[in-house]
Design a protein around this nucleic acid. Sequence first.
DNA 1: GAGAACATGTAAGCGGTTACATGATTAT
DNA 2: ATAATCATGTAACCGCTTACATGTTCTC
Lengths: 184, 184
Amino acid sequence: MSKRNKSKYAMLGMLSLKPMSGYDIKKNIERGIGSFWNESFSQIYPILRQLTNEGLATVSIEEQIGKPNRNVYSITEQGRAELKEWLDEPIIGQYPMRIELLLKLFFAHNVSPNVMITHVESFQTQMADTLMEYKEVEASLLKKLDSKKESIHYQYMTLKFGIYFCDATLKWCDQVIDDLKKLA
Amino acid sequence: MSKRNKSKYAMLGMLSLKPMSGYDIKKNIERGIGSFWNESFSQIYPILRQLTNEGLATVSIEEQIGKPNRNVYSITEQGRAELKEWLDEPIIGQYPMRIELLLKLFFAHNVSPNVMITHVESFQTQMADTLMEYKEVEASLLKKLDSKKESIHYQYMTLKFGIYFCDATLKWCDQVIDDLKKLA
DNA sequence: GAGAACATGTAAGCGGTTACATGATTAT
DNA sequence: ATAATCATGTAACCGCTTACATGTTCTC
């Protein structure tokens, strides 16, 4: 009944794309699903070891010259089965969002409107940067959409979420800055 | 340097609106900022006590007939000062988002598209419900906008974020369901 | 009669971040 | 030279959720 650890499924999902090391997984999470998911090394490495103990993944050590060895993990049939089981499950409950900017804005009557204008503007530039990154990824994904890999389509759908979110947020920022200026 | 506990400021912020009990704060958080912030009783009560120990709030016990006593907290000048300090600070770093639906969608090549159609559709109806609630709150806020309380304006701005977010998400759901049907 | 709302709290445990530890290679 | 990338891990700590504990009144 308690909140299950979803990091495990994030690992299995990543390994379902291709065999990877812990380091690879970190990078792929950042570049691929960083807008709505994050994992740190201190979670990744122990979970990966746990997966092998449970027979959901196997390891092979790749020796490299001049670099540390890579522990490359591959998903097993059993791992795939467990991943599918999780994918089938309906999603219950809410994702917790804690957006500090909005918390401050809600209590902004305690300070001058200019304070919040500054905060919202820097939030806005951050968002604009993020959107540009997404657009670049989009361009590279669009080239691959014809390929036989259906996973590309799913990657594109999640990316679109990020783009929709940024767009909406940027429009909101414009409006809020306008409103704040009227109060100032 | 470590991640500071922002729950404290959520409490101070709530008390900056009016004196409240822990129970009141919980309700006000749910109804007012629930779309981007949450607190549980096991955080609220200890923090409230801590605030009084630090001189940031005072308590008064209201006796009631047939109901448990209410411990009503009021913010002190010192509390207001600390709240303002926090409001002034620039917001550093990212808010962690963990949206399970998107995690599943990213790995959806492992299951039939119909599985994700089901998930996205129930996500969509949830969002639509949320949006309706927001619209109701919006209607009641619009009536109060003329009032002398400037805090209403800030409440409206944060509510607008929720509305923008829901709108964008609903449009995204429409598109994704279309795309998924083409894959099925 | 069941369940929600009112009202306050504690204890245990997991989830997750931050800091620590190590060290070579490559790019600026 | 300095920083970044590659690469794997551990330990400590904090934040937060879940479960537990208690009891009345009001609503369906």
